[in-house]
Amino acid sequence: MSEHELRVAKIRDGTVIDHVTGGQALNVLSILGIDGSAGLSVSVGMNVPSDRLGRKDVVKVENRELSQSEVDVISLIAPEATINIIREFEVVQKNRVDRPETVVGLLSCPNHNCITNGNEPVKTNFTVVDEGVRCTYCGTIIRDALADHIEPTR
């Protein structure tokens, strides 16, 4: 590391989401429900040079692990992402994300008239299709800006 680079302190325990598609870091944070208010220590690199991707984003979150459904949605906006679990400053586990077949309970359906937006004891459920994701209840397709549809009530 040269002296021209700014060094962010290493995290002891937490998660590094690396190789995020350039420009998607803030969407990754919104998938994780992180807006800074909970006091988690978070660092974000945007459009940093990457051998593999040209430019990539990196998100580092201290004391936080990711749920499967969070990883699933991240995979949809950042298909090349790797999830690194850090314990005692070391990478103890590294996983590539997989495009899931379904996303359960994380996105809300943009169709206000969908039964999942009523007061029913049911989780949202989206199938991953070529064009995006599709509500299994009402059929509505979300094509882009997936992160805008993260359920606010999580």
């Binding site: 999942t116 049911v122 299994t136 059929g139």
Partner: peptide, 13 residues
Amino acid sequence: RHPSEGAAKMAAE
């Protein structure tokens, strides 16, 4: 019959 899309699918569950 229900006014919300997806109601029957949910009911069946």
